[in-house]
Computed example of a mutant assay.
Amino acid sequence: MPTSVMTRRSLLVGAAATTAAAMTACDSGSGGKASSRQTEKVTILTGVGFQGREAPIFVAREKGWFTEVGLEVQALPGKGTTDNLKNLVGGQATFATLDVSGALMEYTKPGGIKNFRLTSVLHQRNLACFIALKSSGINGPRDLAGKTLSYVPGGINHLLFATYAQLANFDPSKIKWVNAGPLQHAALLAERRVDAVSQFVPAVDSVRALAKQPITVLPFTDYLTDLHGSAVGVTADTAQNKPDLVRRFNSALLRGLKYAIDHPDEAGQIYAAQKETQGQKPEAAVSELKGLVGYIEGIADAPLGHFDMSRVARNIAILQGAGAVPAGLPPTDIVLTNLAG
């Protein structure tokens, strides 16, 4: 194994161990500060609906790690980055799951939402992809031209599509879009009501199982190589006035993230047992969690959940080169490095 990969993994393992040790010290050797602190109720918006990749929230809640840091956490179904940002700054949630590139695009557009900051990164690599049936004849991005695609309004597949099409060298203007809920895409594809669906790579196995035939997967990372995936956002006011709250939340959530990717079978069971997930099958969540590993570990020279600012700068540069954001955005305007926990 290359030395650089071992170093990155060591950083990730070390960060998880440090977090666990800090939690233990808080419980047993710090005078019971966490247990004596008045519990604060907070909410977090998921990315889109409730899907297996959201399991770390429920793992941290079920294991009592949010409680240990004085928090009672309610998970709310998100509706993609654009709506999540509107609800976040509108006061409907304390925390929100946001796609980093989508957030950058919103922040820099005329009249866009600017009252937010990104505080910890969940996925170091973007998860977006399109999935088509092999029988459709779609074998590469250029074959999407003129086709019918499913999407979530305000979701990153739709927000980044013009950039993706530009780099893949096809005309995005003749696409027909079909609005779909988070759990409807696979059924639309299986029923041939669309030619391809917006999805995240870890959900590929679930789509394949429902389609019951060979599929083609077109990851955005084939062309958008250095884009981040999801991150945890808060309002700029919360970041400035309640930094301890943000750190406590992030530390517990990242503990849940580490546990979920290390113990996907257990995490999938925990996820499927929650009232919010409405009886979803644990196997689908397990598959997503196993598929997440390559998007979280061994990518950035930073501990789990911490932004590598050189990669943030490259993320911005890619979007600038494609004309998706204007030049001159300092990464530190939107990404905070001292609140990850």
Results as ranks from 00 to 15, higher is better:
residue 125 R to P: 00
residue 84 N to A: 04
residue 61 R to E: 11
residue 119 T to F: 10
residue 70 G to I: 13
residue 47 G to K: 05
residue 116 F to I: 01
residue 36 S to M: 09
residue 69 V to D: 01
residue 80 G to K: 05
residue 147 K to S: 09
residue 61 R to S: 07
residue 129 C to D: 00
residue 142 R to S: 05
residue 65 W to N: 02
residue 87 N to T: 12
residue 42 V to E: 01
residue 108 T to I: 10
residue 82 T to R: 05
residue 132 A to C: 02
residue 35 S to E: 14
residue 77 P to W: 04
residue 68 E to R: 05
residue 91 G to R: 07
residue 153 P to K: 14
residue 70 G to P: 12
residue 53 R to H: 05
residue 89 V to T: 15
residue 84 N to G: 00
residue 124 Q to Y: 09
residue 59 V to T: 02
residue 95 F to Y: 05
residue 106 E to N: 06
residue 153 P to D: 15
residue 99 D to E: 04
residue 73 V to H: 00
residue 137 G to E: 13
residue 46 T to Q: 09
residue 144 L to F: 09
residue 77 P to H: 01
residue 108 T to K: 13
residue 108 T to F: 05
residue 138 I to T: 10
residue 125 R to T: 02
residue 60 A to E: 01
residue 120 S to A: 08
residue 39 T to C: 12
residue 66 F to A: 03
residue 129 C to F: 12
residue 92 Q to A: 07
residue 60 A to L: 08
residue 97 T to H: 07
residue 58 F to K: 00
residue 92 Q to W: 13
residue 90 G to M: 10
residue 156 I to A: 13
residue 35 S to P: 15
residue 118 L to D: 02
residue 136 S to L: 15
residue 60 A to Q: 00
residue 83 D to E: 15
residue 64 G to P: 07
residue 43 T to E: 06
residue 46 T to A: 02
residue 151 Y to N: 04
residue 144 L to N: 04
residue 78 G to L: 11
residue 121 V to W: 03
residue 105 M to E: 03
residue 118 L to C: 03
residue 131 I to G: 01
residue 58 F to V: 03
residue 149 L to F: 13
residue 145 A to D: 10
residue 43 T to Y: 06
residue 127 L to R: 06
residue 71 L to P: 03
residue 70 G to C: 10
residue 40 E to Q: 04
residue 142 R to W: 12
residue 68 E to G: 05
residue 156 I to S: 06
residue 85 L to N: 03
residue 35 S to I: 09
residue 83 D to V: 14
residue 44 I to F: 15
residue 46 T to S: 13
residue 99 D to I: 11
residue 147 K to G: 03
residue 156 I to N: 02
residue 146 G to Q: 09
residue 58 F to R: 00
residue 103 A to T: 15
residue 52 G to D: 06
residue 104 L to H: 05
residue 38 Q to C: 09
residue 145 A to F: 03
residue 67 T to Q: 15
residue 92 Q to V: 15
residue 97 T to C: 14
residue 132 A to I: 08
residue 153 P to W: 06
residue 99 D to A: 05
residue 138 I to W: 13
residue 96 A to F: 04
residue 99 D to V: 13
residue 137 G to S: 04
residue 120 S to V: 13
residue 67 T to H: 13
residue 135 S to T: 04
residue 132 A to F: 15
residue 62 E to P: 02
residue 98 L to P: 07
residue 137 G to W: 05
residue 57 I to T: 08
residue 65 W to C: 03
residue 59 V to W: 09
residue 148 T to Y: 14
residue 42 V to H: 00
residue 107 Y to A: 07
residue 142 R to M: 11
residue 77 P to K: 11
residue 152 V to S: 02
residue 38 Q to A: 10
residue 130 F to K: 00
residue 103 A to G: 12
residue 108 T to R: 03
residue 75 A to K: 01
residue 154 G to N: 00
residue 101 S to M: 09
residue 104 L to C: 07
residue 152 V to D: 01
residue 91 G to L: 10
residue 107 Y to N: 06
residue 69 V to G: 00
residue 104 L to G: 01
residue 100 V to P: 02
residue 124 Q to H: 14
residue 117 R to Q: 08
residue 122 L to C: 01
residue 65 W to L: 12
residue 77 P to A: 07
residue 146 G to H: 14
